[in-house]
Design a binder for these strands. Sequence first.
RNA 1: GCGCCCGUAGCUCAGCGGAUAGAGCAAUUGACUACGGAUCAAUAGGCCGGGGGUUCAAAUCCCUCCGGGCGCACCA
Length: 553
Amino acid sequence: MNPADLSATLLSVVSRIAADRGTPDLGLTVNDLVLERPRNRDHGDWASNIAMKLAKPLGANPRELATEIAEQARAIDGIASVDVAGPGFINITLDAAAAGALAKTIVEQGEAYGRNDSLAGQTINLEFVSANPTGPLHIGHTRWAALGDSLARILKAAGAELVSEFYINDAGNQMDNFGASILASAKGEPTPENGYPGAYVAELAQRVLASNPEILELDHDEAIAVARERGYELQLGEIKKSLAAFNVHFDVWFSERELHAVNADGKSAIDAAVERLRAQGHVADIDDAVWVKTTDFGDDKDRVIKRGNGIYTYFAADAAYYLSKGDRGFAHKIYLLGADHHGYVHRLKALAGAAGDDPEKDIEVLIGQLVSINGARLSKRAGNIIELDDLREWLGTDALRYSLGRYPSDSPLSLDPEILQKRTNDNPVFYVQYAHARTHSVARNAGESGVDRSVFDASLLTNESESILLGVLAEFPRIVAQAAELREPHRIARFAEELAGSYHRWYDQCRVTPLNDEEVTDVHRTRLWVNDAVGQVLRNSLWMLGVSAPERM
RNA sequence: GCGCCCGUAGCUCAGCGGAUAGAGCAAUUGACUACGGAUCAAUAGGCCGGGGGUUCAAAUCCCUCCGGGCGCACCA
């Protein structure tokens, strides 16, 4: 019996009691009947606070209500005991067979175990990183790359129809500055004003020179254009390579230029977007400029979308981009932004509102705090930028992905490179990976000793560490659903650590492979199922975090 | 000044109203002629930043103050 079954069964019990008391329709759903795994093992396998929750609406004493529920719950098949404790907690203990059956289920479901339909039917566009293609990705992008990619995997696992998207800011002045910087470097001239310094520009310049030596001969503007386009192509390629090496995948690479391109009707997507906002009544012409009345939706000031000189602001492209997401069928848009962009939240929400969408439901902006290393904040201003590639080569994809993924995005994060390089318990990623590797080594040894999965008798799983382990395994689908709903990948990492810990403790107490002079029994065979179930769930967890699950370390 | 985020063990951090607030590291002490000791067991460590409030119940929700971070462009 898994927690979902137990909740459903308990729900029917509670509904029946409510009906008996003359309150038939409380509108209760399974979600109201949250079962928790109590911290204290003396409180059973699962605990419910439903009696305390319902005491008021039913006009009942919580303890009496709990007692009544407990009496009826005792009769349910698979439940070993039910106790009432404290102010009205209902503590449930499953019998070993009912709890243990899960191990077999997990092995049979394999990669599917943990997946659920909690977000079924939702169409989500998840945008993250979205860096300018004018330079390498740095640590400021790294956290969002890790979190965004993990979140995408988790949302998909929860049944959402999701597309992950990288918005390429390939329009605007910075592209010309980029081109001019490359050209200057190619000619051996100093970096121009507002240009991009850095060794990577010189490298790009050499590559551009190799493929397009004519830039030295062309007139200035043409040469800049060639340098810009070729440099863009090369740099975007570098970005894609960096992300792929970091195990980060995007379904769509969306070019801002598409929004500026003039279509057959003589208008760009941006022109059309401004017209649509105007039709909704949220645009005003003041002086020569065009404004969006974002204050209608809680922004602290209105925003210019088209300047007095007739040129659109960056905000115009944002508007067109937002609308394009809706036009492409995404009801729900999630943006992952760094804390240094949080001033943008109101504007984006206002955009949704001005477009006729619901700013509370259709758009969601997740703000992530910045990362520091050894307490030193890394910022462009301080000039201590570290590139994603350097970090990855230094610490490894697994350690970096994991340590960025195991904290909520809104908590400021300080990484210690010393710890990240350690291959010990200090470094949680190795703790979890080692547990996974151990499940494989246990399975290998078991196989060599003639232990197979020919028998599964869950009633033999009686060790306390065994029932704890099974309880942790049972929580996985709910953890996934919760991580998806709250957009919090770190919950998967924390779960994986708890599972790894429970597994190591179980390993310490329960042998899968018999000692030399012992015979292979059904206990060993059944435990092999448990071992393999743990390996599967660790694998599924690590996959969601974009971290490898090695079979040997 | 206004807005958003954070403040929990010596350190890095979990804990979307529930029972005695947790984990890892660091400290102290144990366990290898036993499936990988990259592990496990045990001890110690806390006015959950301060103060009010809501609730049967607050680290969690509300208000306020203090401390830290980040933003407040007809830039992109």
